[in-house]
Every structure is written in structure tokens, then in C-alpha cells.
């Protein structure tokens, strides 16, 4: 097990799309172990995508279980993930291990459904909401060479309070 070096923008590799995973072998699972350890070593990190450590494969890990009072699925290992449904739109603050010392507001879907494969290639189907859905959308962006900087919303937009309709 190892904590891998995290790439920091302007590293060009963070802007390149990642390729689908085709082989579900020991090497993949060893990499996932390292990737998860790297995520947990980052301060406050609740997600990581393989391109953040220089691996251009469609692999992300999301685990928001450390945050209190959230609906979540525990530690999610998502390979070749695809969001199949988006609903609602909500603004929230995001940061990124690959963009240190900056956080910004980003609009994300409130609810998503996605399909993915797990570390052994078995199919997963999930419905996620809120903070967990935000983390997944942030990490999936990394697989397409997008950073949250590509989706920033002006902080001044916050001047008008976000009304929560039941």
C-alpha cells in the first residue's frame, strides 16, 4: 500500500479524458487500494479520481461517510461510471486536492442515478443525493478532464438566498 503523489493543476494530465477500464485483475485492485489510501491521506478528502494520481483510467472512489448526518452509500469504488439521470440543481462549495488553497461555488444536480462496475467488474446501480451526489459528479468530471474551476459560479450569486422548497 502506498500514498500516491497527487497531481496539481496546471499539470496537463488533469485536463485529459481518461480511458475505460478493461481488465479487472489484481493490479487494478492493488491500484484501488493505493488510490483509496491517497484519498484518505488528503485533508478532508471525500473523493478521488485516478487521473489525479496520473492514471488515465475511469476509476473513482467516493466516501462521504465521515461527514455527519448525510445520506450515503459508504465507500464507493466506481469503475467506468456513467450518470444516467440528473434531477434538481443546487449550489455548493467545492475544493480539490489538485487545486490547493482555493474553494469555489459550483452548481450540481441534487439527485443522480448512475451505473458503474465495482473492483471485480460486477455491475452497480445507485441513486445518490446531496453531498454524496456532489462528490460523485466532481470526481466523474475528473474522468473527462474537467476541474471544478471549469464550473465556477460567482460568489456574488449567493447574494440571493437559496430557498429550499419542500
Amino acid at each position: 500500500m502506498a500514498v500516491l503523489p497527487v497531481l496539481v493543476f496546471p499539470d496537463e494530465r488533469l485536463k485529459q479524458p481518461a480511458q475505460p477500464v478493461g481488465h479487472f485483475d489484481h493490479a487494478l485492485r492493488d491500484f484501488i487500494t493505493d488510490l483509496e489510501q491517497t484519498m484518505r491521506a488528503g485533508p478532508g478528502g471525500v473523493g478521488i479520481a485516478a487521473p489525479q494520481v496520473g492514471c488515465q483510467q475511469r476509476i473513482v472512489i467516493v466516501d462521504v461517510s465521515s461527514k455527519p448526518k448525510l445520506v450515503h452509500h459508504g465507500c464507493l469504488i466506481l469503475i467506468n461510471p456513467e450518470i444516467t439521470y440528473r434531477d434538481g440543481s443546487v449550489m455548493g462549495r467545492e475544493g480539490c486536492m489538485s487545486v490547493p488553497d482555493f474553494t469555489g461555488n459550483v452548481m450540481r444536480a441534487q439527485n443522480i442515478k448512475l451505473c458503474a462496475l465495482d473492483a471485480r467488474g460486477a455491475k452497480l446501480e445507485l441513486a445518490c443525493t446531496g453531498y454524496e451526489a456532489r462528490a460523485i459528479q466532481h470526481e466523474l468530471d475528473h474522468l473527462d478532464g474537467l476541474l471544478f474551476l471549469d464550473r465556477l459560479v460567482s460568489r456574488r450569486t449567493d447574494l440571493f438566498p437559496r430557498k429550499k422548497y419542500q
Binding site: P43, G44, V46, G47, V64, K67, R93, G95, A135, H142
Partner: peptide, 8 residues
């Protein structure tokens, strides 16, 4: 509203 940055 609490601000809880999502760091990924």
C-alpha cells in the same frame, strides 16, 4: 447555512 466544502 454551514459551508462544508466538498474536497475531492
Amino acid at each position: 447555512e454551514t459551508i462544508e466544502p466538498m474536497v475531492g
